[in-house]
């Protein structure tokens, strides 16, 4: 396939260029993440008003919702990176996808466990087969499959491609899985309260949530870049620029 892309796109294919640019961007994202997360947490946990129905227990959404959003965004990112890696044979894109997988899985675990904690006061049980939670659980399985596939190949380039194929198959299936789980859920008497139902939140509640979501994205970008840089160094350990980098530093 020969699709013309802007120059920076091809520059991304160079491990050294990517390594350097990520090194430059990282501190900014780290700082933004720190500021946003601290603001969001303090605001959400201490200053936002309590919910008229759930009291203070709803405050877990400031952790739960951003994690759930990130868990899904991360999968999309991996799929896009996988396509770029396969179409343009770009190793860096594959490395980004690989570095993202464990972060996405962690986000899914956080979303699941906060959902369970939230479920205790709301439903009176740690686990309820709620559509949203069930979809999240399946998403976690998809992540685990991809991570397992990466590690099953001794050759990294092959593992990258295999996992990219699986990610694409997964991303095509996610809407179908979601739809079927929601349909299944309505079939078996839905829980009276779903975690997704948002009864018109007042701004004092959703603004800190928005800040948290942005903070999560920045944090995600920060961790992703850090992981990608390490993986780049590892894979390129024989090439000139890594040797130069490692010997030149005082």
């Amino acid at each position: 396939m020969n699709i013309k892309m802007p120059k920076w796109f091809y520059q991304l294919a160079s491990p050294k260029w990517s390594y350097d640019i990520m090194g430059m961007l990282m501190p900014w994202f780290g700082l933004a993440a720190l500021l946003l997360l601290v603001t969001g947490i303090v605001w959400g946990l201490m200053f936002a008003p309590p919910d008229y129905q759930q009291g203070n227990s709803y405050r877990i959404i400031y952790i739960h919702v951003p994690s759930a959003i990130l868990a899904q965004s991360c999968f999309m990112l991996m799929a896009v990176a996988g396509i770029i890696g396969m179409v343009w044979k770009m190793k860096v894109a594959h490395i980004v996808a690989k570095s993202a997988a464990p972060i996405g899985a962690s986000m899914t675990i956080i979303a699941l466990s906060t959902g369970a904690i939230w479920g205790k006061p709301t439903w009176g049980a740690w686990w309820v087969w709620d559509a949203r939670l069930t979809s999240m659980l399946i998403l976690l399985f998809l992540y685990l499959g991809i991570i397992a596939l990466y590690s099953a190949f001794s050759n990294k380039a092959s593992g990258d491609q295999a996992a990219s194929i699986l990610t694409l198959v997964g991303v095509v299936n996610i809407p179908i899985i979601k739809y079927s789980v929601e349909w299944w859920n309505t079939l078996h008497q839905p829980a009276s309260f779903t975690l997704t139902k948002k009864p018109a939140m007042p701004p004092e509640m959703w603004v800190p949530l928005l800040i948290m979501v942005l903070g999560y994205y920045c944090f995600f970008a920060y961790v992703l870049m850090a992981r990608t840089r390490i993986e780049l160094l590892e894979r390129e350990h024989k090439s000139g620029w890594v040797t130069a980098l490692l010997t030149d530093t005082p």
Binding site: A13, S14, K89, K91, G240
Partner: peptide, 11 residues
């Protein structure tokens, strides 16, 4: 060998 274009994985 200096595998210069190593970031372009050939398939």
């Amino acid at each position: 060998v200096d595998t210069t274009p190593s970031y372009l994985v050939s398939v």
